[in-house]
Simulated assay, not measured.
Amino acid sequence: MGKTKPTFLMIVNQFAGAGQAQSNWQKIEVQLKERKVNYETKLTDHPGHGIQIARDFALRHKYDNEWVVVAVGGDGTLHEVLNGLHQGGGDHIPLGYIPAGSGNDFARGVNLPTQPLVAMQKLLAVQKPTLLDVGVYQNRLDSHETLFTNNVGIGFDASVVHAANAGQKDHLRKYHLQSSAYVSSLIKTFFKQKSFGLRVKADQASQQFNRAFLVTTTNIKYFGGGGAHHADC
């Protein structure tokens, strides 16, 4: 990260990976202290908190080049921190990632170690940032832009996620007790979801679909916990 040692802001989602991130973070913190790394810690405690923490940090450190922000958690945690930095004008701030979730698709997609301690060791050895592509989509209703590292979907899968999140109580979301909510939402959405018209433009070509049901755009070759592999699609 340069000649001077950076200070790391560790944004930690302890509830990622069905709670395993908490024990992983404790081990990582021991390593940071043993190696006398300069760092500060911010713990997320509700969905969207990572966006708020990263945005507030970026607003305070727009012109500071001595920090590295590190997301510790799953793909959702990385997504929140990335967008928080972007919203706060902190696109220039280096962003690190310690995968501690259940799927860790982004780590697989960019060949990062999926073991948190190994990933931390690799991060500390980095001398300069690596530029990676991210996607961006715009909500045409309010022109709001959102960045994504993994994928963005519309149709059936997006409806299932939206229904599951909307139907859960905060304390269930906090502790990621979501399986039954997703199964219930999947069944309900399957019978309610209608097809829709879709036009896709890419490389000056355009294709029209009259009955689309599920559409996903990917930035990496994995999604769904690594179970779906689309390198050849």
Rank of each mutant, 00 (worst) to 15 (best):
G2I: 08
K5P: 01
A18L: 08
Q20I: 04
A21V: 03
Q22W: 07
Q26H: 09
K36D: 15
K36L: 14
V37N: 04
N38D: 14
N38W: 06
E40S: 12
T44V: 10
H46G: 00
G48I: 05
G48P: 06
I53C: 05
D56S: 12
L59R: 08
K62H: 10
E66N: 14
W67R: 03
V68L: 08
V70Y: 12
G76L: 04
G88L: 06
G90R: 02
H92M: 02
P94T: 05
D105I: 00
G109H: 11
L112I: 11
Q127P: 00
P129W: 04
T130E: 14
L131A: 14
L132S: 03
V134I: 14
H144R: 11
H144I: 10
L147W: 10
F148K: 02
T149R: 00
V152R: 05
I154A: 07
I154Y: 03
G155V: 13
G155A: 14
G155K: 12
D157H: 12
A163I: 01
A164R: 06
A166R: 12
K174S: 07
K174M: 12
L177I: 10
L177T: 07
Q178N: 14
S180Y: 12
F190I: 01
F190H: 10
F191A: 09
K194P: 15
R199K: 14
V200C: 09
V200E: 08
Q207H: 13
L214N: 15
L214F: 15
V215K: 06
F223C: 04
G224P: 10
G224Q: 10
H230R: 02
A231D: 14
